[in-house]
Design a protein around this nucleic acid. Structure first.
Lengths: 141, 141
DNA sequence: GTGAACCCCGTAGTCACTACAGGGTCAAGC
DNA sequence: GCTTGACCCTGTAGTGACTACGGGGTTCAC
C-alpha cells in the first residue's frame, strides 16, 4: 500500500543525508525501520514525514534532545503544549539576542569597509568588540 | 608595570574558562604567554583584551579560523587597505547572511510562540514543523 | 605546616554530524 | 551469465569547539 523507500531515497526525499539518518537511528531520534531480506532499511511515508519534522527542527536550531521532546508532544496531541511553547519561547529569545549582536557587528564591519583611511581606523574593530561587553544576554559559551 | 594575571584571573576577567584559554593557546588563537618560575602562565592586560575580542567573536558565531583572520586585520591597521578591505568585506557578507538566516528563524519562531491552544493538538510549533517545506530559504544542514 | 584553591599536562568525552574502510546487494548493459 | 557501478551494511574514527578528568605540583592564608 504505502510506498517504500531505501535510505538513499528517503534521504533525497527529506534533504537529510543517509549517514545522518543512520545516526538519528543510533541515537533513538528515528525508530529503526523494518529491513528487507538482504538487510536493507525500508522506510514508509510516515518515516519521511517524521524525518522532515526533525530536519526542520534542526534548521530552526533546536537540539536533538529538544526535538525528541517535540516529537513526543506531537505524538500525544491530547497533552498540554505548554512545554513546546516554552521551548520555542526560549529559543526565540536566544535568536533575537544573536541578531542584535550580529547587527552591531555588521555596523562595525561596514564602517571598516567604508573606511578611506590608510591607518589605525581599522582598530575600531577590536575596540568595539572589546567595549561591547555591556548588554549581552547570551549565555556563556 | 602592567598588571599580571594567572590563567584563572584572566578567565574571570574575560568570561572564558581556563580550559578554553589553554585550548586557544594549543590551537594558536592566543599566543603562549611567558611563564613564572614554577611554570604558571602569566598574562597581561593586552592578553585580556585579546581574549575578550575572541569571546565576543565566538558569541557572534565566528569560527576560530575566522577570528584568527579578524585578529590579523585588527593587528595590522597599517596594512594595504585593499587587502584589509576585502577581508572585512567578506566577513561583512558572512554576517549579513547569518542575520538573514536568523531573521527567517525568528519569524517562524515568533509565529509559533503566539499559540493560544492548551493542547498540543493545535500547537503551532508542531504544526509548523510538520508542514515542512513551506518557507525555508535556509541552507541545507 | 596543612588544607584549600589554584596551576600543570595529557587524554578522553560531548554534540551533531561526516567520512572512511571493508564488505555485501542489486539492476542494467553487454 | 557476467561485469560494472551505484547503492546498502557495519563499525570506527575524524571534525570543531569546547569541557571534564586524572594525577600530579604550587601557593597562600590560617
Amino acid at each position: 500500500m504505502s510506498a517504500e523507500f531505501t535510505i538513499g531515497e528517503l534521504g533525497r526525499a527529506s534533504g537529510v543525508n543517509p549517514e545522518t539518518i543512520r545516526y538519528y537511528e543510533r541515537t533513538g531520534l528515528l525508530a529503526a525501520p523494518p529491513r528487507s531480506q538482504s538487510g536493507y532499511r525500508r522506510y514508509d511515508a510516515d518515516a519521511a514525514k517524521r524525518l522532515r519534522f526533525i530536519r526542520r527542527g534542526r534548521e530552526l536550531g533546536f537540539a536533538i534532545e529538544e526535538i525528541k521532546t517535540l516529537l513526543q508532544l506531537a505524538d500525544h496531541p491530547e497533552a498540554p503544549c505548554r512545554e513546546a511553547d516554552s521551548l520555542a519561547r526560549a529559543h526565540l529569545a536566544e535568536v533575537e539576542a544573536r541578531i542584535a549582536d550580529l547587527c552591531a557587528m555588521r555596523e562595525v564591519l561596514s564602517q571598516i569597509v567604508e573606511c578611506q583611511s590608510h591607518t589605525a581606523e581599522h582598530c575600531r574593530l577590536i575596540e568595539t568588540l572589546d567595549q561591547r561587553s555591556c548588554c549581552s544576554p547570551l549565555p556563556p559559551l
